[in-house]
């Protein structure tokens, strides 16, 4: 009896100790992440005023804003999405509708999942070799690098969402005499629309904060430029340059830019989440 009580007590203690450790780990981890957001907000909010959205990036020591990098980020992200969207949706369609469990589809799925978390700096090198070397840095190259990062995200979500559509729906349409492309475009796409939009939003969120692939494709630009054949500023690249500098006003702008990007990414993620839950599961 005494043996079993002492063993029982030990088991309880082990349990209590390890569960406390888990709570401590959770609290510590969440606090650390909370601190990051809090400091980002504190440092960033001070730098945000109307000038940030209306003036160009300044030389060291004088006032200015982030208008040209904001334009550059929006432009390059936009072009990237326009390129990546059809490619990603079509490839996802192939995997979900035609390929399914065929060996080719399994391999493509695996490679796509690997590319999903492949180092973005390598994508930058790839586009540099492809579009910049021997020519010059350009916004087109930056947009292409971002597109390559966006495609796997869209492929993955499109496939996942199409696979959620029950097959009887497709069979019913086929039984009515609809050809395959009709079944896909009029039935499957319609039913999976919210999910596919979610994927695109997530892809935008992912690429809008990407820095490494832009550093040697679009480079950066101190001035206002809308020429896609020339180097173009982007928020992440400007943050990289300004944060690494020794000038106070540049550092402040870097924080403001960081806050803008984080806010944009969080909003996109939250909207994507709402989109997915708004549509009832079928």
């Amino acid at each position: 009896m005494t043996v079993s009580t002492s063993r029982y007590r030990r088991r309880l203690w082990v349990n209590r100790a390890l569960m406390s450790l888990s709570v401590i780990a959770a609290v510590a981890g969440l606090t650390a992440l909370g601190i990051i957001l809090t400091i980002l907000f504190q440092k960033g909010i001070g730098g945000i005023d109307a000038r940030v959205f209306t003036e160009m990036t300044p030389p060291p020591g004088s006032d200015g804003g982030l208008l040209n990098p904001i334009y550059g980020s929006v432009f390059m992200t936009g072009v990237a999405v326009i390129v990546a969207m059809p490619l990603g949706i079509l490839a996802g369609t192939y995997l979900a509708e035609y390929g399914r469990d065929a060996r080719v589809a399994v391999i493509i799925r695996l490679i796509n999942d690997v590319l999903l978390s492949a180092p973005s700096v390598v994508v930058g090198l790839f586009i540099y070799e492809l579009m910049v070397r021997g020519r010059h840095f350009s916004a087109w190259a930056g947009a292409m690098a971002l597109a390559i990062i966006a495609v796997p995200v869209i492929v993955r979500t499109t496939e996942d969402m199409l696979r959620l559509i029950p097959d009887p729906l497709r069979e019913a349409a086929t039984a009515l005499g609809a050809p395959r492309w009709h079944v896909i475009s009029k039935v499957a796409y319609q039913a999976a629309r919210a999910g596919i939009v979610t994927g695109i939003l997530l892809a935008i969120a992912r690429i809008s904060g990407e820095t490494a692939p832009l550093l040697f494709t679009a480079l950066n630009n101190q001035f206002w430029s809308t020429d896609p054949n020339a180097p173009m500023a982007s928020l992440p690249a400007v943050i990289f340059q300004f944060a690494g500098s020794a000038y106070k006003n540049w550092q402040d702008l870097a924080w403001a830019g960081a806050l803008i990007i984080t806010a944009a990414v969080l909003v996109l993620n939250i909207v994507a989440r709402l989109f997915r839950t708004a549509e009832p599961k079928r």
Partner: peptide, 28 residues
């Protein structure tokens, strides 16, 4: 015809994923 075209189009896009991988390795 449209069916075949659509199927090939999606297959083509899917192979684009493999092409990116090959492109990265070869160009680097």
């Amino acid at each position: 015809r449209i069916d075949a075209f659509f199927r090939n189009l999606t297959g083509f896009a899917a192979f684009g994923v493999l092409a990116v991988l090959a492109g990265v390795i070869v160009s680097l």
